[in-house]
């Protein structure tokens, strides 16, 4: 097994404008995702949702600035750290991660 980080990217304005029904749909989908991941043979090691980039603070050397490290239309909004057999299994799991408009990026965790 190997660990993969699934990074969720989404349009923050879309989230801000989402209806209560849409919120509800996505949250429920995240609840189901746990089971679906296990059904596919993977395991969620940890996960988290991030507060919007308006709450972000960047630090480069000694300089502290307000805002995210890189301004992008679709911002990092959450993550799942999973354990999977190989990339095919990780991608099959990643396809089930609920997002509003955006998508996810799958990165293998480096093994030392």
């Amino acid at each position: 097994m190997a660990e993969y980080m699934i990074l969720l990217f989404d349009d923050e304005t879309a989230w801000a404008e989402a209806s209560p029904d849409e919120y509800d749909r996505i949250f429920k989908a995240h609840g189901r995702f746990q089971e679906q991941c296990a059904e596919l043979g993977g395991r969620i090691v940890s996960s988290g949702a991030l507060q919007p980039t308006s709450t972000a603070t960047s630090v480069r050397g000694d300089v502290v600035t307000d805002g995210p490290f890189a301004e992008t239309k679709e911002a990092l909004g959450g993550y799942y750290l999973i354990d999977a057999q190989d990339l095919d299994q990780a991608l099959a799991i990643a396809k089930l991660v609920p997002v509003l408009r955006g998508g996810v990026e799958v990165r293998p965790i480096m093994v030392f």
């Binding site: 190997a2 057999q85 190989d86 990339l87 095919d88 293998p108 480096m110």
Partner: peptide
């Protein structure tokens, strides 16, 4: 190699 793309 790094992302473990399976040989299958």
């Amino acid at each position: 190699a790094a992302a473990r793309i399976p040989y299958r």
